[in-house]
């Protein structure tokens, strides 16, 4: 049963993650009054890349070739640590919220190393910026975990689902997580997924040397990471508790509400992306400083019990 659940959750993340990316692009295009690409375009891209010829730099070592597997492995492990179908995640005994933060750091570490491996200055720039941003993300993320652990008495990710209660502190935690998600999924105002021009060279600059199947792995990993972040926010602020099959009406609400939460978050991300401008890299420190302060507010609210 558990193995089945793990496989199901893995397949869900792999299958839905590109759709979420396409959805965000579609919403953005609609707000901008454009027709835009199909919502399924990320699938076509992945399919095309998967069977395309691959070019590897002469300078690159085994780190460059191994990185896609490590990055994909780490985000998939992170995906398994999130409670999706019922209260508890399949791996809640293997690691809590804190462990998830470290697991994501593993993928990022190898991604940055792979970027440095080809000797291109674009890769180096991307790696430097990515590590800069992520090191500022960590304290804010730690405060979110801290605030949740104060509320639920545990760092276990499953608990918000079981003891559901909307509070000021979980709202503040969710907003903090949302800002972190913008930074972690390379969205405007921190980064821009649509281009790899110098101004926005973070994630796209790191994967610049990748092509073909390796690039498909890297893109899929980025999409899954995005979905992981969205599920985390949903879990913190409006966990959808499993109603059981007994009450049909509640079950129908659950079935509708469950994906709706994720779509709402995706819509918010799209709205932020079209309505604000990209920040200068050093303003990102202020942006994440704001996330840090929000995290502190969330902790204070948790202490006060509101």
């Amino acid at each position: 049963m558990k193995i089945l659940l793990i496989c199901l959750q893995l397949l869900l993340f792999i299958a839905i993650a590109p759709f979420l990316s396409g959805l965000i692009t579609k919403i953005k295009n609609n707000i901008r009054m454009r027709k835009g690409q199909s919502i399924l375009q990320p699938y076509y891209n992945l399919g095309k890349l998967f069977f395309k010829e691959e070019v590897v730099s002469r300078t690159a070592s085994w780190i460059f070739r191994a990185a896609p597997f490590v990055v994909l492995g780490s985000v998939l492990t992170a995906a398994l640590m999130i409670p999706v179908f019922i209260f508890s995640s399949p791996l809640h005994k293997a690691g809590d919220f804190l462990a998830l933060v470290f697991i994501l750091a593993l993928g990022r570490f190898f991604l940055a190393l792979a970027a440095l491996d080809t000797g291109s200055s674009f890769g180096g720039m991307g790696a430097s910026r990515e590590m800069f941003i992520s090191s500022l993300v960590e304290p804010a993320l730690c405060l979110v975990v801290f605030s949740l652990s104060l509320q639920y008495g545990s760092t276990d990710l499953s608990l918000p689902g079981a003891n559901y209660g909307l509070s000021v502190s979980s709202l503040a935690a969710a907003v903090t997580l949302f800002l972190i998600a913008l930074a972690e999924t390379s969205r405007i105002p921190v980064d821009n997924q649509e281009t790899h021009l110098e101004l926005t060279m973070v994630h796209e600059a790191m994967v610049l040397e990748y092509s073909g199947r390796s690039l498909a792995f890297m893109e899929l990993a980025a999409q899954i990471k995005q979905m992981v972040m969205f599920f985390l926010i949903a879990q913190v602020v409006f966990p959808a508790a499993w109603p059981g099959l007994g009450n049909l009406w509640q079950f129908i609400i659950w079935i509708l509400w469950y994906p709706a939460r994720i779509i709402i978050i995706a819509g918010l991300v799209a709205f932020v992306e079209v309505s604000v401008a990209k920040m200068r890299l050093f303003r990102v420190a202020d942006f994440l400083g704001f996330a840090f302060v929000l995290g502190i507010i969330s902790v204070i609210c948790a202490i006060l019990g509101v």
């Binding site: 190393l113 590590m131 992520s134 993300v137 304290p139 730690c142």
Partner: peptide
């Protein structure tokens, strides 16, 4: 605890630098 998290983030950045610049590329 948040400062410890910041430290570990910065340490990761430092070792991307130390390993990447010393051992990778040309």
């Amino acid at each position: 605890a948040a400062m410890l998290a910041l430290t570990s983030g910065l340490a990761a950045a430092c070792f991307v630098k130390a390993f990447g610049i010393t051992f990778l590329a040309q």
